[in-house]
Simulated assay, not measured.
Amino acid sequence: MERHFPHTNATLTPKQLGFLFPAEWHPHRATWLTFPHNEASWQGDKLARMRPQYLAFIQAISQGEQVGIVANDEPLQRFIQAELEKIGVDLSRIEFLIKPTNDAWCRDHGPAFLINPETKQRMVIDWGHNAWGGKYPPYDDDNRTPTAIAEQLGLLSVQPGIIMEGGSVEFNGAGTVLTSRSCLLNTNRNPHLSQQQIEEYLHNYYGTEQVLWVEDGIVGDDTDGHIDDTTRFVSEDTVVACVETDPHDANYEVLQTNLKLLQEMRLLNGKPLNVIELPMPKAVMIDGFRTPGSYANFLICNAGVIVPVFNNPHDEQAIDILEKAFPERKIIPLLATEIIWGQGSFHCLSQQEPLV
Rank of each mutant, 00 (worst) to 15 (best):
L193V: 12
A10E: 13
F35D: 00
K282H: 04
A82F: 03
C242N: 10
Q317W: 00
K120T: 09
P146V: 14
F96T: 13
E215A: 15
S168G: 14
N9T: 07
I162H: 01
T187Y: 01
G88H: 03
N102F: 07
W341D: 02
M164T: 02
D320C: 02
A60P: 10
K282V: 10
H129S: 08
M285N: 07
W105V: 09
E39V: 15
D90R: 05
L33T: 11
D140H: 10
A71L: 09
S350I: 12
L114Q: 01
V177N: 01
P137N: 08
Y205P: 04
N102M: 07
H192E: 15
V67T: 12
G225A: 11
Y139D: 13
T34Y: 08
N188K: 04
F19P: 01
E74K: 03
G288D: 04
G217W: 11
P52H: 05
N258A: 10
E74Q: 12
T119Q: 08
I61P: 01
E328D: 14
F171V: 04
E151W: 04
N116W: 08
V177W: 01
K99D: 10
C348Y: 11
E39I: 15
I87V: 13
L259H: 10
G288Q: 06
Y206E: 03
W25E: 03
